[in-house]
């Protein structure tokens, strides 16, 4: 079943065929942060995808991940690009690094060599 919601004035929709996002946000609704772990290459991935972006295999399981980590880098958005964001500018957006992902980029580079 499709899910629709309003988030900060923005309409959100998850289609019933979008199984990965349904599963991801089901965990979020339970205040749990879970990511997919590829059962072939053992690498985490975000955002949720049908196939592993690192090795292209489909098998994955959801594993709990700590929702903390250093920010790198942070930027400030001054000009709104949509009506909902107009009321909230300026706002900050940060990219965070999960400690569970330490060394993952290096391992992923090793996989890329196979392509």
């Amino acid at each position: 079943m499709s899910i629709t919601a309003d988030y900060l004035g923005m309409p959100l929709s998850i289609d019933e065929l979008d199984g990965e996002n349904l599963a991801y946000f089901k965990h979020c609704a339970a205040h749990e942060f879970h990511l997919q772990l590829c059962e072939s290459c053992n690498l985490l991935r975000y955002p949720p995808t049908t196939a592993c972006p690192w090795c292209m295999r489909a098998d994955a399981k959801w594993v709990p991940v700590e929702g903390k980590g250093p920010c790198t880098p942070t930027r400030k958005c001054i000009t709104p690009f949509s009506l909902p964001s107009r009321a909230r500018t300026p706002y900050l957006v940060s990219a965070g690094r999960s400690r569970h992902a330490e060394g993952q980029a290096k391992r992923a580079r090793g996989l890329a060599g196979r392509w």
């Binding site: 959100l12 996002n21 964001s85």
Partner: peptide, 26 residues
């Protein structure tokens, strides 16, 4: 690219749930 008109009412779905919803818009 902007969405100050009718486009801002288009539901955010798919991968955009992990970008546009958090303010990655332009």
């Amino acid at each position: 690219i902007g969405g100050t008109g009718a486009r801002s009412a288009v539901p955010i779905a798919g991968d955009m749930l992990h970008s546009r919803a958090y303010g990655w818009q332009s």
